[in-house]
Design a protein around this nucleic acid. Structure first.
Length: 866
DNA sequence: ACCTCCCGCCATGCT
DNA sequence: AGCATGGCGGGAGGT
C-alpha cells in the first residue's frame, strides 16, 4: 500500500524534478533518465518496474555514467579488478564485459574477497549518487535494483543502507525503497550525534574504559568495579540494547515498517560508533573500546567473548561503510600489549552546537529538528513504559525511573553544557556571555517561582521552562498527571503547544522563545530502547550555544557549515531552503509519519490526525516525552528534557506542516536571549530550542529533580549532585561559573567516573605538545563536498550551502579550540588536527586510557599533544 | 595465528 | 504464507 502510494507521489516529483538537479547530479540524472529507457529493460531482472519508477538513475548505464563522472578513480579501480563489471548489474552484462575486458572468467565468478568487500561495494554504491542531490528531485533508491546492478546480495545492500541511514544520507521510503539524501544532512546529523554523544558521556565512558584497561594491568578488580559501575549508571540498567535512534527533522523514516522494526541495531550501532569519534578527543576509536562501550550499554555485565566478537564484526561492517564515506580511516593504536585496530575520524570537524564561533556547530544543531514521528515514537515508548505497554516490549517502569534518576544525577554534569555555550559565545562575542547570565538569572527566577508550586512540577517546569508550561495549560493538566515522574512532561507541554494549532496563539509564542534552541534531534526509542538509553548522558553543553545562533540555519545551514551560521541575517532568508527541502517529500513524509506512528506500534494511534489529534497527541506526546526523556537520557541529564521538549515541538510542527513550519523557525533565530524574547515564528521557533536556555535549565532542574526524586539508583550522583540539587540558585551559580570557565569540567567527569579520571586530564595536558593544523580537517571537509557543490542543490541556496559546507570543516578547529580553551586552559587554540593524532596513537598507547582526555576540554589538550 | 569480514542461515515482523 | 529485513556467527581469505 504504502509503496504504491509513495511511488505514485514520488514519481511525478522525480520526473518534474529530474531536471532541476544542478550540475553533476543533474547531469547524471538527466543522463540516466535518458539512458534508463534503453538499458532499463535489459538490466533489471527482478523488479525492473519498480526500479525504473523509484530510481531516477537506474541501470548500468547510469551507474557507469555516475561512476565515471563522480569517481573516475573508483571506476578505473573497479575495471582493473573487474568489479566494474559487476556494477553493470545483470549477469549477462557482466559476462559480456568480462569478455571484453579480459576474459577472466573465473575472476568474475570469484572475484576475490577483497573485491567483494563491503567497503568497495559501498564505494560503488556511493558512486551512483551525488553527494548533494537536488532535493527537488526524488532520489529514490530501489534496493533490488542496486543489488542487481552491483551484483551483490541484497543483504549486503542492507548493511550499507543501514549505515547510511544512520547518518541520514538515505531515508527509507517504503519497502525496498530508499531516498538518497547524500551529504546534505550529514553535518547536521553529525552535529546531532555529537550532541547526543556528549549527552551520553561517551567521552567519559571511553576514558573510563581506558582507565579500566590501564588499571587492569595493575588491579583488575578495582578497575572492573569502577568501570562496571560507571557503565551501569550510564546504561541505565537493564541489559537491553540501546535502541534509540537519532533522527533528523529532514530525514525521517517514512516507512512504518522501519520505525516499527525493533531492531535498528546496526543503525544505532553506527550512530553510536560515530558518536564516539565525535566525542573523543583524539578522534580515534579502537574497535575494542567501541565494542565495549556498545556492549556495555546493552549488557554491562555479560561481556562474553562471543558477544564481543559479534560486536567487532558489526563494527567492521560499519567501519567499512564509514571509510567509504571518508569519514574514518583505519589506523592502528600501538599499545604496550600490541597493536590494536582502530579508526580515526577523517570526516568534517563538527562542533557541537555550542560554540558560537564556529558556524558549523550552529548549523548542525539548529538544523536538526525533531519530528513527530520521533515524538510519537517516544510517546509510544512512554506509554508502554508508564502503564500500558502498548508495545510488545517496553522496559519496565522501574527502568524508566532509574533512567530518570540517572538523568538527574547527570544534571551535575550539566556544567559542561553551559561551559561550552559560554565558550562559543565568548568566542564569538563577549556579549553573548552576559546574555546567558541574564538568561540564567531569568530562568532561575522562573524556576523558583514554579518551584514554589511544587517540587516535581517545578522540575518539570524548569526543564521545559515555565513559560512553556503556562501557555500550554490544557496540556499541562494532562501533563501534570503524568509529570509526576519526570521532567520530560514539562517538555511535552512545549511540544504540545506548537502542535496546538495557531489558535493557542499566545501561549505558543511564549514558548517558542524559551525553547528556541535546541538541537533538534529526535531520538527514537524503541521499547527496548528505554533501557538502552541508559547511556546517558550527559548534557551536552554544546547544544546550547549553537542553537542560539544557528537555530535558524537549521536545514539550510545544516550542511553548510560554518560561516553562514555566523551570518544570522542570511539564515532567515535561507530558511526558504528548508521548505524546498521538504516540500513534496516531507509532506508526504508527514503523512507517512502519521502512518508510521499509527502503524508502528500499535495501531493505537492509528489515525491520529495532526490537527484534530493535536490535543490527544499532546497528551501522548507528553507521555511519550516523559518516557523518552527517561529512556533517552537515562543518566538523567537535563538535556534530555529539553530535547524532549524540542522534539515535541518539532513533532508538533512536523505534524502540522513541515514545510510551513520549517521556514519560520529558521528565520526567527534570535539572540541567545531568546528566553525573554518572544519568538516571532511561533511554531517553528518552538521547534528549535536554544540549547542555551535548555542547558541551564537542565542544570537547574536537575538538582531539583534530584531532590524530588528519591530514587537514586546510582551511587552517586556523586559529587555534583549535592550542590545542584538543593538550591537552584547554587546550581545556577555553578553553572555560571562553569560557563565562565571558572569551574572545571572535572565536575562533570566526576559525576560519571570518579576521581580517577581527573588526574588523567592533567597528564594529558602536560603531554599535549604540538598542535597540529586544523588544515587537515578543513581538507577533509572540503573533499567531502567538493565534488558536487553546486550541482545538486535544487535551490540556489543549496549550491551555496555546499560551498559553505566544505568550509565548515575548517572552522571546526577554530571553534572547538576556542571553546575548549575557554573551558580549560588559557592556552587556547590549539588544536591540532585529530588526524595527526593518529600517528601518535602509538605514543598514546603507553598512557592507554589516560591518553584520551576524559572531557572535551581534555581532549583538546590531547590533540595538542599529538 | 590473528585480523578482517564475507556469506548466508534464519529469526523477526510487515503485507 | 510470503516477503523484506537484518541479527548473527561460522569460517575462510589475507597478512
Amino acid at each position: 500500500m504504502e509503496n504504491e502510494k509513495e511511488n505514485l507521489f514520488f514519481e511525478p516529483h522525480k520526473r518534474g524534478l529530474m531536471k532541476t538537479p544542478l550540475k553533476d547530479s543533474t547531469m547524471a540524472n538527466i543522463v540516466l533518465a535518458e539512458i534508463q529507457p534503453d538499458f532499463g529493460p535489459l538490466t533489471t531482472p527482478t523488479k525492473p518496474t519498480e526500479g525504473s519508477q523509484g530510481e531516477p538513475w537506474t541501470p548500468t548505464a547510469n551507474l557507469k555514467m555516475l561512476i565515471s563522472a563522480v569517481s573516475p578513480e573508483i571506476r578505473s579501480r573497479d575495471q582493473k579488478r573487474g568489479l566494474f563489471d559487476n556494477s553493470n548489474g545483470l549477469p549477462e552484462a557482466k559476462d559480456c564485459l568480462h569478455e571484453h575486458l579480459s576474459g577472466d572468467e573465473y575472476e568474475k565468478s570469484q572475484p576475490s574477497r577483497k573485491e567483494k568487500s563491503l567497503g568497495l561495494l559501498c564505494h560503488k554504491f556511493l558512486a551512483r549518487y551525488p553527494n548533494y542531490p537536488n532535493p527537488a528531485v526524488n532520489n529514490d533508491i530501489c534496493l533490488d535494483e542496486v543489488a542487481e546492478e552491483l551484483n551483490v546480495e541484497r543483504r549486503r545492500i542492507y548493511d550499507i543502507v543501514n549505515v547510511l541511514e544512520s547518518l541520514h544520507m538515505v531515508s527509507r521510503l517504503a519497502k525496498n525503497r530508499y531516498t538518497w539524501h547524500g551529504r546534505q544532512n550529514l553535518n547536521k546529523t553529525l552535529g546531532t550525534l555529537k550532541s547526543v554523544g556528549e549527552e551520553n558521556k561517551y567521552a567519559e565512558q571511553i576514558i573510563m574504559i581506558k582507565k579500566k584497561e590501564y588499571e587492569q594491568e595493575f588491579d583488575f578488580i578495582k578497575s572492573y568495579s569502577i568501570e562496571d559501575h560507571i557503565i551501569k549508571s550510564n546504561s541505565g540498567q537493564s541489559g537491553h540494547p540501546d535502541m534509540c535512534f537519532v533522527e533528523l527533522p529532514g530525514v525521517e523514516f517514512r516507512a512504518a515498517s522501519v520505525n516499527s522494526r525493533k531492531d535498528k541495531s546496526l543503525r544505532v550501532m553506527s550512530q553510536k560508533f560515530v558518536m564516539l569519534f565525535l566525542v573523543s578527543t583524539p578522534q580515534i576509536v579502537s574497535l575494542e573500546i567501541a565494542a565495549k562501550i556498545l556492549i556495555g550499554e546493552d549488557h554491562v555485565e555479560d561481556l562474553d567473548k562471543s558477544k564481543f566478537k559479534t560486536k567487532i564484526r558489526r563494527l567492521y561492517d560499519i567501519a567499512n561503510v564509514l571509510s567509504s564515506l571518508d569519514l574514518i580511516k583505519k589506523v592502528h593504536i600501538t599499545e604496550e600489549r600490541g597493536r590494536k585496530p582502530a579508526f580515526k575520524w577523517t570526516g568534517p570537524e563538527i562542533s557541537p552546537n555550542t560554540s558560537g564561533a564556529s558556524p558549523i556547530v550552529h548549523f548542525t544543531p539548529s538544523d536538526l529538528e525533531v519530528r513527530r514521528s520521533s515524538k510519537e515514537n517516544c510517546a509510544k515508548n512512554l506509554f508502554s513504559t508508564h502503564g500500558k505497554p502498548n508495545f510488545t516490549r517496553h522496559p519496565s517502569l522501574i527502568k524508566l525511573v532509574k533512567s530518570i534518576e540517572s538523568d538527574r544525577r547527570k544534571i551535575n554534569s550539566a556544567p559542561s553544557s553551559p561551559i561550552k555555550t559560554i565558550k562559543a559565545e565568548s568566542s564569538q562575542n563577549s556579549a553573548p556571555f552576559p546574555n546567558k547570565m541574564a538568561q540564567l538569572a531569568a530562568i532561575c527566577k522562573m524556576q523558583l517561582e514554579e518551584q514554589s508550586s511544587e517540587p516535581r512540577k517545578k522540575v518539570k517546569v524548569q526543564l521545559t521552562r515555565p513559560g512553556y508550561c503556562k501557555p500550554v495549560v490544557p496540556l499541562d493538566n494532562s501533563v501534570n498527571a503524568e509529570q509526576e515522574l519526570t521532567a520530560p512532561s514539562l517538555m511535552q507541554p512545549l511540544g504540545v503547544v506548537p502542535l496546538i494549532p495557531s489558535p493557542l496563539s499566545s501561549a505558543v509564542p511564549m514558548i517558542l522563545p524559551q525553547a528556541p534552541s535546541g538541537p533538534s534531534y529526535a531520538i527514537y526509542l524503541q521499547p527496548a530502547q528505554a533501557q538502552t538509553m541508559t547511556p546517558p548522558q550527559g548534557l551536552s553543553p554544546k547544544f546550547c550555544p549553537t542553537h542560539s545562533s544557528k537555530a535558524i540555519g537549521s536545514k539550510d545551514s545544516t550542511d553548510v557549515p560554518t560561516e553562514k551560521t555566523v551570518n544570522n541575517a542570511p539564515k532567515s532568508s535561507v530558511s526558504t531552503r528548508p521548505g524546498s527541502w521538504l516540500p513534496a517529500p516531507e509532506r508526504q513524509g508527514a503523512k507517512n509519519r502519521n502512518r508510521e506512528l499509527a502503524g508502528e506500534r500499535g495501531s493505537k494511534r492509528a489515525g491520529i490526525l495532526e490537527d484534530s489529534g493535536a490535543p490527544k497527541k499532546c497528551k501522548e506526546e507528553l507521555k511519550g516525552l516523559d518516557s523518552v526523556s527517561a529512556t533517552l537520557f537515562p543518566s538523567g541529564y537535563l538535556i534530555p528534557l529539553t530535547q524532549c521538549s524540542a522534539l515535541g515541538a518539532e513533532s508538533m510542527l512536523s505534524s502540522k506542516e513541515n514545510s510551513c513550519t520549517l521556514s519560520p523557525n529558521h528565520r526567527i533565530y534570535g539572540p541567545p536571549l531568546t528566553g525573554v524574547v518572544p519568538v516571532t515564528s511561533s511554531e517553528l521557533t518552538a521547534v528549535n530550542f536554544p540549547s542555551f536556555h535548555v542547558t541551564p535549565l537542565k542544570l537547574m532542574v536537575s538538582p531539583t529533580s534530584v531532590a524530588a526524586v528519591p530514587v537514586g539508583n546510582s551511587p552517586a550522583p556523586t559529587s555534583s549532585h549535592p550542590i545542584p540539587i538543593q538550591n537552584p540558585s547554587s546550581a545556577i551559580v555553578n553553572f555560571t561559573l562553569q560557563h565562565l570557565g571558572l569551574i572545571s569540567p572535572s565536575v562533570q567527569v566526576s559525576a560519571s567516573p570518579g576521581p580517577g579520571i581527573i588526574p588523567v586530564s592533567p597528564r594529558i595536558e602536560a603531554v599535549s605538545v604540538v598542535p597540529e593544523n586544523a588544515g587537515t580537517q578543513q581538507a577533509r571537509a572540503t573533499h567531502c563536498d567538493s565534488p558536487i557543490l553546486g550541482q545538486n542543490q535544487p535551490n540556489g541556496q543549496s549550491a551555496t550551502m555546499t560551498g559553505t559546507q566544505q568550509p565548515v570543516p575548517v572552522t571546526p578547529k577554530g571553534s572547538q579550540l576556542v571553546a575548549e580553551s575557554f573551558f580549560r586552559t588559557p592556552g587556547g587554540p590549539l588544536k591540532p588536527t585529530s588526524s595527526s593524532c593518529v600517528d601518535f596513537d602509538g605514543a598514546n598507547k603507553t598512557s592507554l586510557g589516560t591518553l584520551f582526555v576524559p572531557q572535551r576540554k581534555l581532549e583538546v589538550s590531547t590533540e595538542d599533544v599529538c
